[in-house]
Design a protein around this nucleic acid. Structure first.
Lengths: 258, 258
DNA sequence: GAGTGGTCTAGACCACGAG
DNA sequence: TCGTGGTCTAGACCACTCA
């Protein structure tokens, strides 16, 4: 049998939904984009189960193999998680750990300790050209600027400048610090419906700025690690840019390369 | 039609080849392992084309979709490269660049410069317990220990201790340095038939050892980046362990995390 | 034009998880 | 026991590369 594309629903009660993206793109790619968008928008929330593969195929009027390939790609991206016999679920990535694992702050059992967080300031500013480029905004667009200290054993160990598009994150401005809690990404999800699924980081080692050395209680000639991070949602749209600085001696990093 | 497994060749001239691995593993996984082994052993060399997908399916007596999935996995691992309309080829990874890109040694156009290489010493030693564990050897097994300096603009910038299993790499002991050249991995491939396809790295920042500071021409109280690397062949067997040290200020690293 | 990988379809049976 | 994902098969047509 040769059917390039099934005929449209023909009046069935549960007809096919429209797929995102250019009609010239492969079906599985368009379905992939569509599901990623539903995760970005919160229609599919972390922990929730997708419809079964055959059900997805039926909903979007594609062959089972095509639906399977779209889901496969999203699993490879880390957005979905398959559990044999149980279903396919939306993953909740944990990037707070991916930052903290760079540094040597562990308890007696070698477990990573979550640091205390102290928000030093919250401002609304106009984005510089460079920042706007990172966040896919226009220069002068409003951004929220958080400055935050992170402390282990009561000692300041990391200083962070965090920039967020005002349009998406304005609820964060008025939240009491104890409601935000020690980790920002769960707060983004709970109060702004923004999910971080991908990050890019750049790591550099430099002499400490005088201001940073003072904030981190380091000798003025000491060295710091600077980590620049761009965080993206499930549709790969940038939603946060931050620059973190910490003592260089505390730094440790492991990576697999292919 | 329901056929769990095709009947064996039945006297055809080009019967199915045997697949590696436990018979309880999926066919595509066993085919994947088989192809990876052929790359490790040099039967499929970098740059060479695999048989066409349908031909692979015929050779190993599996369905086209199964052969395709095995190849797909190897493409995802970075061992193979597809070129639409042309064929599927064995990739040659370039890990020398993955090390060098950490450091800021670039020309006026921003291109990475390949450093001069100077092998300081070559010895045969007995592996310590820790080293043996890294290389999947037994403590006391013979290893080759190379110490190497890498220089940019005539200045020593990296010092490296490199350990290799003697059994696989003994030809490297007798090669003149100008035959080895500035990069080791091509020499491994050319003279020892060993291909590096995967690496794991750990990065730490510490105060310089006196000996390293002297070799790198740094102040005795300066800081260095230490990069520990384990290199593996296409079958994921470890074949090299090295520790490299360089000036911390020169360090820069970029990474995507999912 | 011949041959390659890329996409899409269709459907069978197996292995696993949860109630 | 039932529904889920995992594996495997079979074959059509399209898009691309290269001689």
């Amino acid at each position: 049998m040769v059917v390039k594309r099934r005929e449209q629903s023909a009046g069935t009660a549960t007809g096919p939904e429209d797929l995102d993206g250019d009609v010239h793109l492969p079906l599985y790619r368009r379905l992939q984009t569509t599901i990623a968008r539903k995760i970005s928008s919160g229609e599919y929330k972390p922990g929730f189960a997708l419809p079964a593969e055959l059900e997805v195929a039926r909903i979007y009027d594609v062959a089972p193999g095509t639906a399977r390939k779209a889901i496969e790609e999203l699993v490879n991206e880390g957005l979905l998680e398959r559990r044999h016999g149980a279903g396919t679920f939306v993953r909740r990535p944990d990037f707070n750990n991916s930052m903290l694992r760079f540094f040597h702050f562990r308890d007696a059992h070698g477990h990573q300790l979550t640091p205390e967080s102290r928000i030093v300031s919250r401002h609304v500013e106009k984005a510089s050209g460079a920042l706007a480029a990172h966040l896919a905004l226009s220069a002068g667009d409003k951004v929220i600027h958080l400055r935050r200290l992170r402390l282990w054993d009561g000692k300041p160990r990391l200083i962070e400048d965090i920039y967020l598009p005002f349009a998406l994150f304005h609820p964060i401005l008025d939240l009491p610090e104890d409601v935000i809690g020690p980790l920002l990404y769960p707060a983004y999800e709970a109060h702004c419906s923004q999910l971080v699924s991908f990050v890019k980081e750049e790591i550099t080692i430099t002499d400490a700025e005088a201001e940073d050395a003072a904030a981190l209680d380091l000798p003025s000639n000491d060295m710091v690690v600077t980590i620049d991070r761009l965080a993206m949602n499930p549709s790969h749209a940038p939603i946060e840019w931050r620059r973190s600085r910490g003592e260089a001696r505390r730094f440790h990093y492991a990576v697999d390369i292919t």
